[in-house]
Design a protein around this nucleic acid. Structure first.
Lengths: 342, 342
DNA sequence: TTGTAAGCGTTATCAA
DNA sequence: TTGATAACGCTTACAA
């Protein structure tokens, strides 16, 4: 009868100590080689590297972290309420950008869903030395706690946090005001004069800024007070806002939807009511995702460098972790994608 | 002159030792309380918990991991080549399901982008004791290495791995054969007789299985040999496949697209060529994502419990980690969503 | 039930 | 340049 009880037989992983023995040097020297210290002789390096290869040695992260007091990992904080977080192409792309950037570094990305029921859990995790820093993709008005967090550990926000007073935090974003103004100007250039907007939430920076940009364009063109209905950036909310807009009875010939998802929902309503785009009403939006691309008709929109936003966030966070200076605000450029829907 | 040089002043985090002193017990007792050991008196528990609260103590993950030899974290392995991984609503939803499930446990989810240029990096990470297990969402033919990996650490696959010989791995999936057959039968029930399919990649289980299910339905109905064109599940590939299908000149009155994204691309081509759906040709697909929902016309499709797949994967992985037995194959049920496009 | 003490695998300090 | 040796903060036999 075998005395083995373990269902899975895993050989003990080689340790730094084992490598030291194999290479005929001390643990310190092995550690130095592993960490690329310059103060090691070529022979020692060679011996250690050979031993590492022979044994298939991989440093133990926990031990390293315990001794060095650095985890080499950062958290990506995602608000739980954004249940469909990943369903949003914008977020998906930002995450992708951050993940790809970090993949080329020694850092690891930990996904942290911020529990609504137990916000403390998130803070405990973040402050418990589990990560060296955090990327926060909230955007919501309740980002208050994260702004505070930024005083405790390095944090980079994706999108301008509403409460900017805490200058210790830095963020990466696009200029939503300019983007909205620019795309609205296309509507104006097409001769649209009775404008309306399906705006985003009034408690999110992107919602506020895009509405502001839209208003700037309307005023600059000397057009009458525009109609405004709010949505929450989702297709369904866009459809509802569009209905409300139409039900107000006012004539509208140009619409700026603050997100392509809302534009997509709005287009469905227009189609149902038999209103042609761009024949009867022009439509422009923001986000060059598949909602904008596959809309019927395809939409003239603003393209944001979403992956670049994520990558830049990660980059700045690592800088912050290394105690380097980073600009408090980084604005990435957007561009217009012309598709004739305006 | 101050002797402080640290740019950021962070007070030393309270340790278990500090809590022990504060509570007037030994470190072991604190540890027991923290870990919910039953062998502690209520008084001791109260004292420790009070001390923990007073000090705001948070256990150090690295130390705990080092001592217990468990990391309490699992990796989500994502193939780098799937550049638009997150852009795929299916993956996004599975990740979401896994993340939400884990959020309610003590486990952490680490995003691991599998570098193509340096596959060893991924294996080293996975085998280096950085995680207690891994969730693999590859689906591709090159999942060979991951199947091997499953012999080293607990692994749960999302979607049937092509090389199933390694029975040490387990996976969670839906029955793609049945799903494809079922939805194709709707086409048949509508009286469609000249069927075609825009199939998925021939080197992915989902592609193979859906094609097989489609063929089963065609044969069962006694219909003639169907036309087959392959795509890679993306909208663009669906459009191209649709074009090829039409260019073959054969009359087709019913199409099964193996993914809603491909169906979406195909619909664009049909629209351009003035072919009405469902008037002239019926279309059914798989995935009840926004591509299916917002297609024109909205598509009759198969709904998969995507989030549940992710949650189940995570659940089984934790079981595996606890050395419990889990079924090698878990099939989650799908359902038909009728929208009249067939 | 509680405490003592020996690790867990690295890094870091300080002599040599 | 190298090597002892002491942390790092926690878990876990083993004793009491």
């Amino acid at each position: 009868m075998s005395t083995e009880t373990a269902p899975t037989e895993r050989p003990a992983a080689p340790t730094l100590e084992g490598v030291a023995a194999e290479a005929g040097v001390s643990r310190s020297t092995v550690s130095r080689v592993i960490n690329g210290s310059p103060k090691v002789t070529p022979e020692a390096i060679a011996a250690v590297e050979a031993a590492v290869r022979r044994l298939g040695y991989v440093p133990n992260r926990a031990a390293r972290s315990l001794a060095s007091r650095r985890t080499e990992s950062v958290a990506l904080v995602i608000p739980e309420n954004t249940a469909k977080f990943f369903a949003d192409p914008y977020f998906a792309s930002v995450v992708q950008g951050a993940a790809m950037f970090l993949a080329d570094t020694s850092y690891t990305l930990t996904l942290l869903i911020a529990s609504e029921t137990d916000p403390q859990k998130t803070r405990r995790y973040l402050q418990g030395g589990n990560v060296d820093g955090a990327l926060v993709l909230s955007h919501h008005s309740d980002d208050r706690s994260y702004v505070e967090l930024a005083r405790q550990i390095p944090v980079v926000f994706g999108g301008r946090p509403l409460r900017e007073e805490a200058s210790s935090a830095c963020y990466v974003d696009v200029d939503n005001v300019v983007a909205a103004r620019t795309i609205t100007e296309r509507l104006v250039a097409r001769g649209r004069t009775r404008l309306a907007t399906i705006a985003g939430p009034a408690d999110m920076a992107a919602g506020i800024d895009r509405l502001a940009g839209f208003r700037q364009a309307v005023e600059a063109a000397g057009l009458p007070e525009p109609l405004v209905e709010h949505g929450d950036f989702t297709p369904a909310s866009g459809a509802e806002a569009m209905s409300r807009l139409l039900d107000r009875g006012a004539e509208v010939d140009g619409i700026f939807a603050a997100s392509a998802q809302m534009a997509s929902g709005a287009l469905n309503v227009l189609r149902e009511r038999g209103i042609g785009v761009p024949d009867q009403v022009g439509m422009v939006t923001i986000d060059n995702d598949y909602f904008a691309q596959n809309a019927v008709p395809p939409l003239t929109t603003i393209e944001q460098p979403t992956a670049a936003v994520g990558a830049r966030m990660a980059e700045e966070l690592l800088r912050l972790i290394d105690d380097e200076r980073v600009p408090p605000v980084t604005m990435l450029p957007t561009s217009v994608v012309e598709r004739g829907s305006e």
